[in-house]
Design a binder for these strands. Sequence first.
DNA 1: CGGCATCCCTTTTGATACTG
DNA 2: CAGTATCAAAAGGGATGCCG
Lengths: 118, 118
Amino acid sequence: MDVSDPEDPFSEMDPQACPTAEAMDVVGTEWRMNVLHDLQNGEMRFNELKEATGASSRTLSQTLDALMDAGLVDRRMEEASPVATYYSLTEKGEALGPVFDELDAWAREWVDPDEVEG
Amino acid sequence: MDVSDPEDPFSEMDPQACPTAEAMDVVGTEWRMNVLHDLQNGEMRFNELKEATGASSRTLSQTLDALMDAGLVDRRMEEASPVATYYSLTEKGEALGPVFDELDAWAREWVDPDEVEG
DNA sequence: CGGCATCCCTTTTGATACTG
DNA sequence: CAGTATCAAAAGGGATGCCG
């Protein structure tokens, strides 16, 4: 009479069950994907990312927090007066490049701006 | 004093600006990615997806709705008595295969179950 | 400039119940 | 089995103000 069904392979979606599930847990939000995508072009400052993604400072801040926490993004701060912060991909983050490349290819092939049919 | 800054290249993130942005708009949620990923292995029934993804019937229903709306998923219903519905990827949906392949590869390479360092 | 705190509204999601 | 409807809780996200 255990709570969890013994027949069930993974009672409640253990992310461990499938690495891809873990991956989606980390990358699976639009904000995170957008930031990651934008950073593929190299390091960017907070406000640059803010404008590029359209996120509010609060949202961007949280997103970057999550990404740094996941080890996908690195922060570099300059000790200057107005403070300059630069965000960039870690090796782990850059390793996602191929994923975005494929997504990009897919988008260009299947997501047409006007659903062109002619 | 207009609300939108004339200097701003794309006042409010036109998805059209970048096809990839569009793509992320369509695939960029964990539920959608999970369903899409699960369907890569072939057609599945509603309840199978429900158990596989851990989504509630309401959530799964909405997710499938969005995916069908985006033309990524197809529905096939059998006119039997208890009603059997099967969901599968459309050509457009299957075209996302490489994306998941890459994501999978990345996950296996960078997302270790125990963060193994040995 | 970077980013945290607060207020508050919107969206998402889960339970639960009900229908064909 | 495959959903839909309803309700209430939780998370997400924007606006604004403030501080280092």
